[in-house]
Amino acid sequence: MIKAYAAFEPGGKLQPFEYDPGSLDDHEVEIAVEHCGICHSDLSMLHNDWGITQYPFVPGHEIIGTIAAKGAHVHNLSIGQRVGLGWHAGYCMTCHSCLSGDHNLCAQSESTIVGRHGGFSEAVRAKAASVVALPDNLDAQSAGPLFCGGITVFNPLVQYNIPPTAKVAVIGIGGLGHLALQFAKAWGCHVTAFTSSEDKQQEALSLGAHAVLNTKNPEELAAAANRFDLILATVNVKLDWNAYLATLRPKGRLHFLGVPLEPLDINVFPMIANQCDVSGSPVGSPATIATMLQFAEQHKIAPIVESFRMDQVNEALARLASGKAKYRIVLHNR
Rank of each mutant, 00 (worst) to 15 (best):
I301Y: 03
L176K: 05
L146M: 13
G84Q: 01
V58E: 01
A169C: 11
H103V: 01
F8I: 11
L138F: 08
L43Q: 09
H178W: 03
N161R: 15
L99C: 08
G51W: 06
G80C: 10
Y19W: 08
D240P: 14
P59N: 00
G71H: 01
R328S: 14
L181E: 01
I151C: 13
V235M: 06
A69Q: 08
A166C: 11
N104M: 04
V29H: 06
A316F: 06
M45R: 14
V283R: 00
T247R: 04
L207G: 14
F154H: 10
S142L: 08
N333W: 03
H255D: 00
K185F: 14
V305R: 02
A225E: 05
G252E: 00
N214M: 08
L232D: 00
P218R: 06
A128H: 08
Q202I: 14
T195Y: 02
G208H: 04
D199W: 04
D25V: 09
K200P: 15
Q54M: 13
H75D: 09
R116V: 11
A302Y: 07
D26P: 12
F194W: 02
Y19C: 09
A123K: 13
I231R: 02
V58T: 11
R227M: 15
H255L: 12
V131N: 02
R253P: 11
A6T: 05
Y5F: 15
L264Y: 04
G174Y: 01
K185Y: 07
V131C: 13
I173M: 06
P250D: 00
T112I: 10
